[in-house]
Structure formats: C-alpha cells, structure tokens
Design a protein around this nucleic acid. Structure first.
Lengths: 353, 353
DNA sequence: ATTTAGCACTCATGCTATCCGAGTGCTAAC
DNA sequence: GTTAGCACTCGGATAGCATGAGTGCTAAAT
C-alpha cells in the first residue's frame, strides 16, 4: 500500500493531537479539533489503512487510534516540523548559561536542571569523556607544617589539586626543586602517556626530593581515573509525574529508579554519534525498563575532541517537535560555552598554549 | 485525663502497627497483630480516650484509628526505642564513606545517595556553611602564553583556584613577586577580614605587578560568595513513590517539585541546633507543601565550627525508630570523616597549621 | 471498679449490572 | 472517491447491593 500525502497528513494530525491530549484519537475528534477537510468516514478509511501499515494501533476494538512507535518514527523522521524558539526562549537559554559554577560537573548539572525547567521533561546529562588531557604545568608548595599541596594545570577547563599529609614535615625547598623537575619532564605530556619510566627519571633528577614523587604518581593515577569516568546526572525527576503515562506510581517509580543508576544513564546516550539529535522511541530502547519511554539525546562538543551528551526522557507520546529544537539549541550553546567561544566570559575556556 | 502507662502501650502498639501496614488500625487488629493482653472492647475504651486526648484520629466514623501528629510527637519523644544497627549495616555505612570524591559538595551528594539507598527514603543534604575561612597560602603562575592561575589554600578542606585570561600576556616574574606580597600580607587572615585597604597595600607593595591585583580581588570576592552559599542536594526521589501516601501522582509531584528547589531545601534544616536529631512531624512544618510530610534532620559537624545537615523526607507515617538511629549514626560518621578523625585516609582532613 | 461479651449501627470496599457515548466497520447513496 | 447512515463494540462511569471490619453502648461477669 502506498503512503499517500493525505495519509501522511492524517498521521501527522493524529500524532499532534495525541501528543497534546494523551487520549486515543477518533475520526470525529480529528475532524473537529484538527480541522481536516474530510468527513470522519473518510478518515476512518485512511485510519484502517494506516493501521494495516503499522503506523497506528488501537488500544481497544472500539476506541480511537494511537500512534505506534513506528508511527512516531515516521513522524520524527519526516513529518514533524520543529517549532522554532521564540526570542524570549533563546534569551532564557543564553541567560541560564551565564550562571556561575566552578567546575564542569556542577555546571552540567545546573544546565540540566535548567533544561528540565524549560522543557518540563526529565533531563539526563553526561559530562564529556576526556580521553586526552594534556598536563600544562605543575606546582607544589607547603601549606602548614605537615601538609603540602600538588597543583596541576590541564588543558581541559580545570586546575586540579591534591592536599597531601606526608608522614614527615614537607620541606619547601625540596618541593620547589621537584616542581622544576616535573615541569621540565612532564609538562606538555598527555596524561595517559606518563609512564613509570617517566616517573623514575623524575625521581632520579629530583635527588633527595624524590621522597615526594610517589605522591605525585598517586595523584596522576587518581586524575587519570577521574577523567576516564563520565559523570551522569538526572534532573527534573518530578516532571516525570506530570505525564499521564506515569500517573501509575509503580511505573513511575520503576522508571525513576532505573534512571537513578548512573551507569544505566551512561549507557543511555548510546551512539548519538553525528546527528545533532537522536530519537529512541519506546521499544527501540535496549533496556527493558525503557520500552515504553522515549529518549531524545543531543550531543554537545567541547573543543575538538570532547563530546558530552544531554537528553530528555519522557513518555513515547513526547512533544518531539518542540523538544528537539530546544534541545539542539541548548546543546549547541552548552558546547560553545564550554569551548570558550562565548566572549571569553566563562571560566571554562580551554587554555590555549 | 491521665496518660496511664497502659494508654502509652496502646498508643505505641498502634503507631508501630500503622507504620508497618499503612492502614487504620482497629481494636481487634491490634489485639491480634500486636498480641496485647486485653480484649478488643477494652482497647476500644482506651482508644476513645486517646482520641479525646488528641493522640489518635479517625479517618471515618467506623474505621480504625490513625495516629495524629500529636501522637507521633509523643511517640518520638517518649515511646519509641531506637532499633540499633546491625553490624552489617554499620559496616555498609563505613564502607560507603570510603568512596572517593574530590570535593566536599560531591562527597555530600554521594553520601546522600547512599543514605537514601540504605533507608529507602528520600534524602536531603546541606553542605556546611563555612563562616570562617582562613587563607593559608597563595600561589600564582602562568599557564600558557595568555593565561595565568591563582591558587589559594584554605583551612577548610579545599584548595581553590581560578584561571584568568588577562588582556595582556602575563609575566611569570611579576606573578612571583605578587605571590610573595600576597603571602606576606594576606596569609593567615580570615577571608572576611580582607579589606579593600589590605588590597591597596598589596597593590602598592607589588609595584608593577599591581596590574594583577584586581584579578585576585575578584577571585576572593567569588570565594567569599561561594563559601556563604550552602549547597543543597536531594537524593532518592524515586523512593518517595514507594510510600502509599504518595501513590497519588499529583501529590507526589507537588512535593518533589517543592523539594527540588534548593532554597526551600536550605530552609528545611531550620534550627536543628544541638539535638542529635530533630523530628518535624506533618503540620509542624512551616511550609504549606510539607503539611502532610515529616522531616527528620540530623546535623553533622566538621571541625569545631562547621555544621551541615542531612535528613530524611517521607510520609508522616515514617518509621521514626528505625530511621533515627541510622540517620544519627550516618551523620556522626560523616562528621568524623569530614573532620579527618578517621585514620587520616580522607582527602578532607582539615589542614592544621 | 474494671473488664468483657453482645448487639445494633456505620461506612469503606468490592462486586455486579446497567447505561452511555465515543468510536468503529460496513453499506449504500451521492 | 467521498459521505451519510446504521448497527455494533466496548471502556468508563454510575448505581445498587452484599460484606466485613470497626465502632459505641449496655449489661453482665470478675
């Protein structure tokens, strides 16, 4: 059977109506609320065929139609037209980005909270995985009689530090010497390329300051672990309860519980590789728990190599058209901001060598 | 009317039963399930009197009794005996504290998530407000051609830093000089005591390095703002839906929405001054939104001056006895750990001068 | 003076029967 | 190809009814 343009129009009208009212749509309703040019009988014909083609489903024999996941898929792929953002919305997004947050993680979290407020959907966000961290510079100094601090500047938005309590009183002079050696041998290297051999060389050159080297090694290992981990956040959980689909608290709870596991969340982004936005509709989800949930994910790019994800989670009956445009715009701004393209106001500009 | 010991026993049995089954408790049920020594008729007498005294309420004329907030209040004040923690639970709490987290905020968040897992209740947590931050030491250095970094070590668990992009290329030599001046004039001062006069003196002594002073001033202002703010977190929202009281999704949503506002959350701790744990039962809450919700809050202490809060939010029918002991133990461990009393393993030991 | 057994009464809950209406498919006329 | 009409279906709301847990009260038993 052929998918005529009228069939498409019917499907589109039906999906839009269902997205709005969350109730099975009948032929008559469709005529009245969507102002289609045909009689309800004609629509019934079309709907029977659309159902045969797998785009619609009927919850009960004498009830209106509901879009099937396949119907939604067609909708997001071809039918919907993304509503543009109003100037006010654009401005609100930009303004939200100006909030102060000290570190990447917290900034992403706050951004997620705002996006959730904007869209009224639950939001998940993944910080970028940083596979290449370049060590720009070391610094070490004492802080109090039995404490010293290691500071390392990286090329990805952050200066990391560690406070160390050695079993012996640290000596400023030795730290200064070790710092010089570290800067001489490790500065400019990529974190992953620092080998035990490197550290041995450093220890040899450091002379009696070599006693401090193990602390540096440990610190670098911790950093490495930290950067390898993508942090995952969830925001706006309460919005989940706003959708009629999750008025059943058992269902809602199961879903929220699933989402509160950050490992699962990390899996959610999947291969949102190149497209600006990716829709995973209901049963297309791998996870059993998400079979009647849709996930819209966009990726944001920081610098050249870093890719993070931010997305919306909601019922299959999602307002894809509205959300997609907002999500894309938001992710784009987020990426720009984190990359430092925004007027240099941010704390996150990557440090250029 | 006098509150005889038998009345107390009846009240206690009734509350325990209600906490367990979440259904109005009748006289006969009470005899059967709680094994009281009296006939149901006798209990009815007592229950009528307890109701007259305001400790019980009857949802419907021919239904069992439900504890009133006043009943709960008596229960938590006098009647309940805190169930101790099993060795396994104690060990789980201790183990959870060993997780690595780089900064105070994230650590508290993770701790809250764990507590929520342990208790199956929604958890809120407030980071300590730090009213006295002592500046121990400054450090400044370049990082790349057009960037420099300011580092300041404080006496409260953290080394803070700021990356600055000045409109002129920073000169290592000048930074070194300014660092020396800063350490000479500001090290040891309390953050709030740094005055514009201080900064002027610094600028004068710094000579041509004075161009960098405004960045330091701005940094200190940001720090000041940051420390004044208590961060608030919420964890385990999904557990809220597990209580029959919140099976109504509208109710649940309203509550979760209220709790997701961190300003409201900050207000929640109220004056949990000296007691190890504070119960706020239903209508005792100031906020309208919490009138049928109970909040159990404990404070944790970091060092001598810092007080943070962590607490549980749930229906009035809360398992106060079980939760209180767990919460107190948890808060105590949290405080110890953050204060560095735990075998020095932590990154958070305060720096002693 | 307490405690208990008995009794009539109340009301929430769950079940069934019924009605209503939105929606359907089909057919025949336009 | 489109539309009007019609008989049919079935979910959801509503009313009626039985059930049972629970109550208060009274009178007898301890």
């Amino acid at each position: 059977m052929e998918l005529t343009s009228r069939k498409k129009a019917v499907l589109r009208a039906l999906i839009e109506d269902y997205i709005q009212y969350a109730e099975p749509v009948g032929s008559k309703t469709l005529v009245e609320r969507r102002g289609l040019e045909f009689s309800s009988a004609t629509l019934r014909h079309e709907m029977v065929e659309l159902e045969a083609m797998g785009y619609l489903a009927q919850p009960h024999i004498s009830s209106g139609r509901v879009p099937s996941p396949r119907g939604y898929r067609l909708f997001v792929d071809e039918l919907m037209e993304c509503h543009g953002l109003s100037e006010a919305e654009r401005e609100a997004i930009n303004a939200s980005m100006r909030l102060k947050a000290k570190e990447l993680d917290r900034f992403i979290l706050k951004a997620g909270e705002f996006l959730s407020l904007l869209t009224q959907y639950t939001v998940y966000a993944l910080t970028p995985r940083i596979n290449q961290v370049r060590l720009l510079r070391f610094d070490m100094f004492t802080a109090g009689a039995d404490t010293f601090v290691i500071v390392v500047v990286t090329d990805v938005h952050t200066v990391k530090n560690k406070v160390v309590y050695p079993p012996f009183p640290p000596v400023e002079e030795a730290l200064r010497r070790l710092t010089a050696v570290l800067n001489g041998h490790l500065a400019g290297l990529v974190l992953h390329d620092v080998t035990p051999e490197n550290m041995q060389v450093v220890a040899r050159r450091a002379g009696e300051a070599g006693a401090y080297v193990p602390y540096v090694t440990e610190f670098l290992a911790e950093l490495s672990e930290e950067f390898d981990n993508r942090e995952a956040f969830l925001a706006g959980q309460s919005h989940m309860l706003g959708h009629p689909e999750y008025h059943d608290s058992v269902k809602a709870r199961r879903l929220l519980e699933y989402l509160s596991d950050s490992r699962e969340l990390a899996r959610l982004a999947g291969a949102c590789a190149d497209e600006p936005v990716r829709f995973v509709i209901g049963p297309e989800n791998e996870a059993e728990e998400l079979r009647d949930t849709s996930v819209v994910t966009a990726s944001y790019h920081v610098g050249e190599h870093l890719q993070g994800f931010i997305g919306l989670v909601g019922p299959i009956r999602m307002d894809y058209a509205r959300l997609a445009s907002r999500l894309i715009y938001f992710a784009e701004r987020l990426g720009w901001l984190l990359s430092g393209d925004e007027e240099g106001k941010s704390n996150f500009r990557s440090i250029k060598m």
